[in-house]
């Protein structure tokens, strides 16, 4: 029961992007298409779940003073794993995500969950928390990417839905990212307020 709660809180109620507004750089940077958003989201989910697990296992061995640097090294190790695996098996995606893959290291969500959750809870809860948060992140990225791809290039996961002549290029470019995310956060705030 408790684990289910751990898992679902990341999906909407404490969604890292839409409610906590963490990790905005990759959110805005890679969501020019839904597929990119999905790839980035899953890569981050892996890092989040694995680093949460390892940190919760070794948390008692790490002296308090070097806590943050140790967390960063653990996170960076998993990011390197993701980097190498993606380079080998999904070179196209690796290229289009570019600099944002190594930058998962400095994604505030990952370090934030390590510090706020994994360093205080057991391995099982931590991995569940990481998965929930990661999937919440992925969900927000896919929705944002879909809206931008649909309005900006008239496609969804590369399937054309309406002719190119009617698209608004702005949404694929930088300003569109900021504006769409702004309205998404406004909507989630409204929904969360209505629930209370």
């Amino acid at each position: 029961m408790n684990q289910i709660k751990n898992f679902t809180k990341g999906l909407l109620r404490e969604n890292p992007i839409l409610v906590l507004v963490l990790g905005t750089c990759p959110t805005l940077g890679v969501t020019s298409s839904a597929a990119n958003g999905l790839g980035m989201g899953l890569a981050t989910t892996f890092v989040l779940a694995m680093s949460n697990l390892v940190i919760s296992l070794v948390k008692d061995q790490i002296p308090d003073k070097v806590r943050i640097p140790s967390f960063i090294v653990i996170i960076a190790a998993f990011v390197t794993v993701v980097e190498l695996v993606m380079q080998a098996y999904t070179p196209g995606l690796f290229k289009s995500l570019g600099i944002f893959i190594p930058l998962i290291v400095v994604n505030c969500i990952v370090l934030g969950r390590a510090e706020a959750f994994a360093s205080k809870n057991g391995p099982l809860s931590s991995i569940v928390d990481g998965l929930g948060m990661g999937l919440g992140f992925t969900g927000a990225l896919v929705v944002l990417g879909s809206i931008r791809e649909l309005l900006g290039s008239g496609t969804l996961f590369n399937i054309r839905l309406y002719p190119e002549n009617y698209t608004t290029l702005l949404f694929v470019l930088a300003p569109g990212a900021f504006i769409v995310l702004g309205y998404m956060i406004a909507m989630v705030q409204k929904i969360n307020k209505a629930k209370k």
């Binding site: 930088a174 300003p175 900021f178 504006i179 702004g182 309205y183 956060i185 406004a186 705030q189």
Partner: peptide, 21 residues
């Protein structure tokens, strides 16, 4: 009311980004 806080900041940033385009 619905746009107060982060949302309006993001929309503003979008317009600023448009200017930089």
């Amino acid at each position: 009311a619905g746009l107060k806080g982060t949302p309006i900041a993001l929309v503003t940033a979008g317009i600023l980004a448009m200017a930089f385009m």
